[in-house]
Design a protein around this nucleic acid. Structure first.
Lengths: 241, 241
DNA sequence: TAGTGGTCTAGACCACGAC
DNA sequence: TCGTGGTCTAGACCACTAT
């Protein structure tokens, strides 16, 4: 046998349908915001019952890949959509307001990937990456310093898009066809470095919320590595379990 | 009209079934770990089709209230269950190991609830609360200081259970019939107080991860308010979105 | 009014676990 | 071998949206 781990010898039809439909999201057949054919049409086209198509669509809906609305139809999830926007935006004001931090890019440069960057982005030795540095402010107060790394090969000519949009995932989708489907974040408390302290207007060593994010594409491959340092005086990170 | 918010004029049958079944979890008819009747039996008993029961059970399963296993049956989720244990335990070692911190209770006392405690626990003016203080250690190193508040009325005689178990939610369930169904956490970075610094063996002002948790019972009422201060030198908080 | 997704039903068959 | 949950189908009807 090629493998000693027992693989499921059986794959449900609705999962196969799901994979075919996800494929159409990956290859751009159905771009973000577009309406899908009706359940009936899909069922006929794929040669399965409507119930099976429904189960695949429901699964993708619960993964936030699709948005379904009774009476209107089924649509490809769009990062610009307010229902999707706050999925990856966990910062909330202490008074309960959802905050959308405005960004100011301070540098975009290409260089050889360091070893941790290669590991996180699963890149081969010698790969190049883009490093984007930016600050983000909420209520006219700089409170986040952010470093974003992506593969230079997967994002050619990234420096041409200037200024980079606030919601950078919409750029990944519209310009590079890379749609973020999952995000893993690791949180710590750290002391501010001298450099970050200067940008944030706080004392060096001041406590910052350190968020290290790995964003995966629909194919499960890491597309972005991001480190944010946040001065959480007036807001917090919300986790709903 | 009594209310100006338009309520859904229609409640699906499977949701009504779900509510009846959740009721049996709340009233203790089906305690944690117990096997439920089969889908067929429930369908017959409730006078609906098996498909409708299935949809209710699937919903409760995705809320982590039930655990289903093909060929075995459907079981009430148990905090002791390893599949459930890590649901509310988001701390992971930097090397990827899931860590279960051991607890040492330093004080259990009853007193009048402060205003923020009353707000968080939705208690009337003049209510009493229990305050539990404890430290938690991972790899023989004290790294968490925790303050837990619960209503004295809902948890009578809590001080009789000594020592309090490490997984305090199993005590809530087995002794008071209060099952935690949802947890909301707010994270910040703060500087260590002199008292916490002494307990954690760090400098005052050292950066700590501040986790404020509100735990809700199956009925949606807040049952516990908890504040943890964590020295995140060797571990982090994991958030999978 | 037409078309969409959402609910509900009934029944057949399959995969899995326990005995 | 039996009973469980899981899959798949087919069809009827309901709630909602757009026009």
């Amino acid at each position: 046998m090629a493998s000693d781990t027992t693989l499921p010898s059986f794959k449900p039809l609705y999962q196969q349908v799901r994979e075919r439909l996800v494929g159409r999201l990956i290859d751009g057949t159905w771009p973000p915001g577009m309406a899908l054919p009706s359940e009936q049409q899909l069922a006929h086209e794929l040669g399965v019952s409507q119930g099976t198509v429904r189960k695949a669509l429901d699964a993708m809906s619960s993964e936030h890949l699709l948005v379904r609305a009774q009476g209107r139809g089924t649509f490809v999830a769009d990062v610009e959509d307010t229902r999707i926007l706050f999925r990856y935006l966990r910062l909330v004001g202490d008074d309960g307001r959802r905050l959308v931090p405005e960004s100011k890019v301070t540098s975009v440069r290409q260089h050889k990937a360091t070893e941790p960057a290669r590991t996180r982005l699963e890149l081969p030795r010698g790969s190049n990456v883009w490093t984007i540095e930016r600050t983000r402010q909420m209520d006219d107060r700089v409170s986040i310093v952010e470093t974003i790394l992506v593969s230079a090969k997967r994002f050619p000519g990234l420096d041409r898009f200037s200024p980079l949009p606030n919601h950078i995932y919409s750029l990944y989708g519209s310009r590079y066809g890379i749609i973020i489907g999952r995000v893993i974040e690791q949180l710590k408390a750290i002391g501010a470095s001298a450099k970050d302290a200067a940008l944030l207007g706080c004392e060096p060593g001041a406590p910052l919320l350190h968020i290290e994010r790995t964003a995966l594409g629909l194919d499960g491959v890491p597309a972005e590595w991001r480190i944010s340092r946040c001065l959480t005086d007036n807001f917090h990170y919300l986790s709903d379990l």
